[in-house]
């Protein structure tokens, strides 16, 4: 698999680490145990396009949000995380 890192260009899969579903949002401090439980444990098992977190640890150390089709491995979008360097620079 190849991933086009927004900073490093097209790189090989071995440089990246997979985390998982990028959809869950960390609940606010007062959200309560149930909300945190869902955040920590509940994941959709999507057959199709899924937003995922990947880490470019073998490159720029950016966390990426990648839309990948879990059936075909086709990657339709790669974005740096909100707090990644380029976003800060662009401001």
């Amino acid at each position: 698999m190849r991933i086009v890192c927004p900073f490093c260009g097209e790189r090989e899969l071995g440089e990246f680490t997979y985390l998982g579903d990028a959809k869950p949002r960390r609940p606010a401090a007062d959200a309560g145990e149930d909300a945190v439980y869902d955040y920590v444990y509940l994941r959709d098992n999507i057959a199709g396009v899924m937003s995922e977190h990947w880490y470019h640890g073998g490159g720029c150390r950016t966390w990426l949000k990648i839309d990948r089709n879990t059936l075909t491995h086709e990657i339709s979008s790669v974005e740096p995380a909100t707090g990644a360097g380029a976003r800060q620079v662009a401001k």
């Binding site: 680490t17 960390r26 880490y55 150390r61 966390w63 995380a81 707090g83 990644a84 976003r87």
Partner: peptide, 17 residues
């Protein structure tokens, strides 16, 4: 290594502000 990755996740994804 894992802590560095975890902290980058916290910084870039969880607490970008």
């Amino acid at each position: 290594g894992p802590v560095m990755q975890h902290l980058e996740f916290c910084r870039q994804v969880l607490f970008p502000e």
